[in-house]
């Protein structure tokens, strides 16, 4: 699977879990949007405001998302200095319990 377009989320960070399979992921990130600051489930798309000299406030589309690079690594994409909380669950695991 190819990585998402760079411009959608210019920063990424890998979590190497070495489980040998793709675990259930639940992740949350702290976003600021229109002055409302809070924790949201990932993946999330939202709007951010940024002051641009000579222009004023610019509305920017932001996103935080992830993909399983392989059976041992999860790559999270987002913004610089974002806060991200990731919970990995050993179960339910697709190749352990399923017929």
């Amino acid at each position: 699977m190819s990585a998402p377009p760079f411009e959608e989320a210019p920063y990424y960070k890998d979590i190497v879990h070495n489980l040998g399979y793709k675990p259930l992921v639940r992740a949350f990130t702290f976003i600021s949007s229109y002055g409302l600051n809070g924790w949201r489930k990932v993946p999330v798309a939202y709007y951010d405001r940024e002051w641009v000299d000579g222009i004023g406030w610019a509305i920017l589309g932001r996103s935080v998302f992830y993909e399983h690079i392989d059976d041992n690594t999860i790559r999270f994409y987002g913004q610089q200095d974002m806060q991200l909380i990731v919970l990995l669950y050993l179960e339910p695991r697709k190749d352990a319990w399923y017929a």
Binding site: P4, P43, F65, E67, H68, F76
Partner: peptide, 17 residues
């Protein structure tokens, strides 16, 4: 575009936009 005409596993792709 990576999923719209391919077989895939839902569980492994829920992090995508």
């Amino acid at each position: 575009s990576s999923l719209d005409d391919d077989s895939f596993i839902v569980n492994d792709n829920l992090g995508r936009l």
